[in-house]
Design a protein around this nucleic acid. Structure first.
Lengths: 231, 231
DNA sequence: ATGTCTGAATTGTGATCACATATTCGATGA
DNA sequence: TCATCGAATATGTGATCACAATTCAGACAT
C-alpha cells in the first residue's frame, strides 16, 4: 500500500501561459478524479517532481492546494495521501452533496435561460451516447459538466468550490460505478431536472438532483458493497 | 486601497513543534477572521515575510492554502487579496451557511451526549457574559466555538471544512455586527438549539440554527446597509 | 493640470541547497 | 524464525538566488 504501487499520470500538454504550479495542480487533480492514485499511497514531493519532470517547488504548492480542497490529506508525519474512506464517511459525503447541490440548483434556476437549457440538453444527449457506448470516463466527465453548468448559472456563485471539494473526496471511490454503469442509469434524472427547470418547479428540481446523486452512488448503498472496494 | 494601508497582525507565540508554515497560516487566518486585512489590499509575499520575520517560503504556502479555502483570492495578475464583497454574494454566503449548518447540526444531533450538552451550555453562558460586557471579540469567538462544538459531534464529519470556508469569506464583513451587537442578541437562539437537541427535535434544531445565523447577519439584510461597508 | 511613456524597483515563480526528522533496511541477537 | 536496534537513505521544511513579468514613479509633452 505504501510506496511501491506505481502511479500513472496522464500528462497533458502544458501551455506556456499557464504556470507550472497550475499545470501540476490540474494534472494531479485529474489523477485524483480518475482514481489513479490508490488511497493511502504515500505521495512524495521528489517522486512526483521526477514523474512530472519539474522541480519540487510547483509540486509542493499543488499538493498544499489539493490538501486544502480535501482531495489530499496531510498526515501528522507530514505525509500526503489520498484519504482513506469508510462507509459512514461515504454516506456523509453523499448526503452533503445532496444538501449542497439541491440548494445550489434551486438558487441557480432563476438565472437559467433558453441558451443554457439548450447546452444542458446537449450534455444530457452526450451522456446518453456515452452510456450506450459504455464509455465510463465520458459519462462521468459530461455528468460533471452538466452539474457544473447548472449550478454556475448563478452569477453570485459561492457553493461551487465547496461542491467540487466533495466531488474530489468521492471520486477515487466511484470507479466501480463507471465500470458497470448500465445498471444505474435506468431513469434519466437529467431530463427530469431539465423539465423541472422549464416549469420553474423548485421542488421537482430538488427531487431530480437528489435522485440523480443517489442513483450515481447507489452501488454503495449498503456498507458491505462499499467495504470490498476500500480494502 | 492598494498598498499603503498598514495591516496589524497580532503575533502569537510560536511553539517549536509547529512548522513555521502552520504558524503563519494561523496568524493570517486569524487576521482575516478579525477583519484586519482590508478587502482589495494587495498582499505581497515579501512584505508579509518582513512583517512576520520569516522567509518568503512559509508565506507562499500559507497564502496558497488560504486561497484554496476561499479566505483569500488570487487574481489574474497573481496578486493575492481578501476578496471584495457584493450584497448579492453576501446573501448567497448567508444562505449557504444556513443550508450547510442546519444540515450539519441535524446530522450531529444523534451523537450529542450530556457531556457535550454541558459544554454547549457553558459556551452559551460565556457568550451571555461577553455580550453584557460588550466584548465583541469574545462573543464571535465563543459563538464560533459553539457552532464548531455542535457540528463536530458527528465523528464522520465532512462538512466542517466547508463551513469554515464560508465563515472565512463572511468574517471580514461582520465587523460592524460585533461593534453594536446589543441589538441583535435579543433572542438566545443557542438556548433554543440546546433544548431542541435535548428533545431530539430535528426541525426545531434547524429553526434555531437558521434563526441564529440570520440574526447574526441581520445588519446586512438590506443591500443599502451592507453597501456602506463595502466601499 | 493631465495623460503618456520609459526606466527602475518590486513582485511572483521556480530552481537549488542545507538541515533536521522520518523512514527503511540490514545486521545482530534471541 | 522473528523481533530489535542502528545506520544509511529518503523526505519535508525552510532559506536563498535568478529571472521574467508586473507595477510604480517621475519626466515629458500636450
Amino acid at each position: 500500500m505504501d510506496k511501491h504501487t506505481p502511479i500513472d499520470l496522464t500528462l497533458t500538454e502544458r501551455h506556456s501561459a499557464v504556470t507550472i504550479t497550475q499545470w501540476v495542480y490540474s494534472t494531479l487533480r485529474q489523477a485524483v478524479l480518475l482514481g489513479k492514485i490508490p488511497p493511502g499511497r504515500a505521495l512524495t514531493i521528489r517522486e512526483l517532481a521526477t514523474l512530472l519532470d519539474v522541480s519540487p517547488m510547483p509540486i509542493r504548492e499543488a499538493l498544499r492546494q489539493l490538501s486544502a480542497e480535501g482531495a489530499l490529506e496531510i498526515q501528522g508525519n507530514r505525509r500526503v495521501m489520498v484519504p482513506k474512506m469508510t462507509a459512514m464517511k461515504f454516506a456523509e459525503l453523499v448526503e452533503a452533496r445532496i444538501c449542497l447541490e439541491t440548494h445550489s440548483a434551486v438558487r441557480a434556476m432563476p438565472y437559467i435561460d433558453e441558451a443554457r437549457l439548450a447546452q444542458l440538453e446537449d450534455l444530457d444527449h452526450r451522456i446518453d451516447i456515452a452510456t450506450e457506448h459504455g464509455n465510463g470516463h465520458d459519462v462521468t466527465r459530461y455528468n460533471q459538466e452538466f452539474h457544473r453548468l447548472l449550478y454556475t448559472a448563478n452569477p453570485h456563485q459561492v457553493t461551487q468550490s465547496l461542491i467540487e471539494s466533495l466531488w474530489l473526496q468521492l471520486a477515487p471511490f466511484m470507479q466501480v460505478a463507471i465500470e458497470n454503469l448500465d445498471d444505474y442509469y435506468q431513469v434519466d434524472r437529467h431530463k427530469e431536472a431539465i423539465s423541472a427547470i422549464r416549469e420553474r418547479d423548485s421542488l421537482a428540481l430538488q427531487m431530480a438532483i437528489s435522485a440523480d446523486i443517489r442513483d450515481g452512488c447507489a452501488f454503495a448503498s449498503s456498507p458491505e458493497q462499499l467495504q470490498q472496494l476500500l480494502g
